[in-house]
Design a protein around this nucleic acid. Structure first.
Lengths: 209, 209
DNA sequence: GCAAATTAATGATTTATTCAAG
DNA sequence: CTTGAATAAATCATTAATTTGC
């Protein structure tokens, strides 16, 4: 690619990335238009950047973070399920003279719900974000006092005018009510990616031991 | 709400709506930023309107149109399935001395694919759109010659500057390759809304005849 | 070492879903 | 119930890592 002409898509410099991650860690998830503008302005010191880049970065980072967490949770739950299954099979083995043949559904907790936003990753963040090795990144974004203020714009779509509302108002994600997601009966799309091993699979993995 | 202060959300005037629908019928689905700007400008003659209103209108209209069509298609297919099922059952009845008991899957075509964009609703539109009762709507949007030009922006997100590229370039939806959707093995989300009746349901509906 | 070829990350777009005003 | 607005999920597309054969 031509070096100066800029390639077709933005790729963040190391510093830009560090700052963005710092902001994310500090609790920002869906920055308002004015937040985006300020962030863009500050980051443009380290290289070419537009508002939409910042917007997309947060959107993608949030989504992929969630995705990562889901996968992790599912792994845990799968392990737990396997354990339960083994216990169950053990019981079954010890009492095989009483009942026979396989079973198709896990005994309990298959439809257990887990609070998604309560897992700590989405914590308020106002507590710390100690700038350990943060370089010349000195502008703070959290303004705990104004957490009550409703953010006038949380999504930044076509043609929104940037409304300068002074300083940052903290992350909007902290205000909205917590959501709970079904952990187990998951949409087909999710199943595609992090499909919780079916009982059949579990059986298979066990039989090969 | 206060009358003059503007209610919380835009509600299109009759004329604005008519024009928007005319544009939609003419083939526009995902207008570019410049298209949005021009449309907005023209529509603002009939009442207060912003670019994002136009943007959202097309997005929603397209989505709900598709949804409507899906429902219609599914109804058709369900009927067809029912017919097939009845035929099958008839055959089954006439040969019931040969095989026994119920079946769980439809005999054929359960995984048939159907071209979604080929159903006519998404037709090119350059052919007609005769302005039947279109009032003072005189500005054309289709420019068949420049269909080859790639639209530089198809989605209009945060902070995109409106790039004035002269006139309209025709709808981008006409350029992209046709997509085919699985008609039958459908995502859970779709199933929720327009769930094609399961064999069980079909049986039930038949048994109540 | 070093490109061509694969694969993994991730920026950008589109589609689906949800919320809420009227 | 309809529909404007907003968000989340899925998908596309390009770039960076990484591997592989020389």
């Amino acid at each position: 690619m031509s070096p100066a002409a800029g390639s077709s898509r933005w790729s963040p410099t190391t510093e830009q990335l560090m700052i963005l991650e710092e902001l994310y860690k500090s609790g920002i998830r869906t920055p308002t238009a004015s937040q985006i503008q300020q962030i863009t302005t500050h980051l443009s010191f380290y290289g070419r950047i537009e508002g939409k880049n910042v917007f997309y970065w947060f959107q993608n980072h949030k989504a992929r973070d969630r995705q990562k967490m889901r996968r992790k949770l599912n792994k845990q739950v799968q392990l737990q399920q396997q354990l339960q299954l083994q216990q169950y099979c053990h019981l079954k083995h010890n009492t095989s003279h009483l009942f026979l043949a396989g079973f198709d559904s896990l005994p309990e907790s298959s439809t257990q719900k887990v609070s998604f936003y309560n897992t700590g990753l989405f914590s308020q963040g106002s507590a710390a974000s100690t700038p350990e090795q943060a370089p010349d990144f000195t502008w703070r974004v959290h303004n705990p006092q104004s957490l009550e203020e409703k953010t006038e714009m949380t999504f930044c779509n076509y043609g929104w005018r940037l409304v300068d509302s002074g300083d940052y108002q903290g992350c909007s994600c902290c205000i909205r009510p917590l959501k709970t997601l079904d952990l187990f009966p998951i949409s087909a799309a999710r199943l595609k990616e992090e499909g919780t091993a079916s009982t059949k699979q579990l059986f298979h993995s066990m039989s090969t031991n």
